[in-house]
Structure formats: structure tokens, C-alpha cells
Amino acid sequence: MKKVLFIFSLLLIMTSCNSQGKRPLMGDTDYQKELNASYKDASKSPLKKKDLRKFNGLEFFDIDSTFIVKAEFTKIENAPTFEMATTTDRKPLYKKYGLLNFTLNGENCELTIYQSQDDLRDKKYKDYLFLPFTDDTSGNESYGGGRYMDVMTTDITEDNTVLLNFNNTYNPYCAYNDKYSCPLTPRKNHLDVEIKAGIKVFKKH
């Protein structure tokens, strides 16, 4: 009987330790939880080892529906291929795909959305569009080099509108580790408003 009680007590201790050791994923939305999970995974995280050891989750602004807007999409026809500047000597090929016009906090805004010519060769990414931007929080509460948002060609509706959710933005890998080469946000993609939504600047250890 004593042996059974001992084994039962041991199982309770092990269960308690496991439950304490497994912390729930940080984040208020599925998007935030998935992003935190990928950054916590050492096999694919852009974080430096010293930062990964202390990583408890990325910082985000509070979710704000104000920053979910419907934009009018205008396709740019016959756009030339160009070399986009990056944080290194790498010059990836892009094309301007279209213009996005929307109103945010009473301000008329316009962003250019791009298409990577390298991604077109990969079936997995051929529908991805690239939307980099800076705003009046850049360099303070958010990363100075700007933030990114992924938009799919399939997100563009038949009436040429697309829903932009600035709560679902992310930083370029360069914000976490200078070994990466990241596209620089073109100057024309600066918004003269504060986008207090999405990912915040990363505080390195």
C-alpha cells in the first residue's frame, strides 16, 4: 500500500512540475500567439541566442479596431522591375503592384504595395504581396526601419478593395538580428499618422 501511495505522490509531483513548466503562448490574438511561437522556436527564430534565452514574448500595441481599414486598390500596369534597397548590399527584384488608398483617423493615406519577383518562382509564395511602411511611431514605440504587413493577391476583392489590419504587422528580422538582410521601407510609404497597433520595437537584452 505504501508503495502505491509513493508512486501516486510521485506522479502528482511530476504532473505539477510539467504544468508549471509549460507556459501558455503569449498574445491576445491567434496572430500574436503564432508569431510568438515561431520566435520561441530556436530552429527558425531570428533572435540572437542571448535574446532567445530570455524571450517571453513580443510586445504589441493594444488591439484597436480603428486600425482595421478598407483600402481602395489601384493596379499599377506594366510596372518596371527594380532593385529594392536593403540593409546590406543585396538587391532583391521587386515590382510596384498597386496603390492602396484609405482614411485613417481622418487622414487620407496612400501606400504602395510591392510584389517580389523572386517569390513568383515559388508556388508557396507566389500570391504574397509586400507592404512595408513607416509612421509617426517609427523610431520611438515601433522599429525605426518600419514595419511590414503581408497581403495576398487573393485578399483583393472583385470591387478592388482590400482589408488592411495594422494589428497584424511584424518587424523585419533586422530589428532582432543584424545578420539579416532586409528591404528598406521606401520614403513614399511613410504615413503621417501614429499607427499604435501591431508590433512594437524590440527591446534587446
Score class of each variant (00 low, 15 high):
T169D: 03
F73Y: 15
I13E: 08
D41P: 06
N36I: 02
I76M: 13
N105D: 10
E107T: 12
S16H: 12
L104I: 06
T87G: 08
E158K: 15
S45W: 09
T161C: 06
N177I: 05
K188G: 10
L11V: 14
N36C: 04
L100N: 03
E83G: 03
F82D: 02
C17M: 13
N171A: 09
Y39T: 09
L164I: 10
F82M: 00
T15E: 14
E141G: 13
E59R: 11
R147C: 06
L25I: 13
P132W: 00
R90P: 01
K75M: 12
Y39M: 14
T29K: 08
D155G: 06
D127E: 15
K48A: 10
F82K: 06
R23N: 13
S9H: 02
I13L: 15
L35T: 03
P172M: 02
I195E: 09
I195C: 09
Y128V: 05
K91L: 08
I199R: 01
C174D: 07
F60H: 02
D51L: 07
D150S: 15
Y173D: 07
Y97I: 01
D159V: 11
D135N: 04
N56G: 13
L100A: 03
I63M: 07
L129D: 01
L191K: 05
Y176R: 05
I156N: 01
T185Q: 05
Q115Y: 00
Q117S: 01
T88H: 01
D150I: 14
N177Q: 05
K2P: 10
L5K: 15
M84H: 07
C182D: 01
E59A: 14
D155P: 14
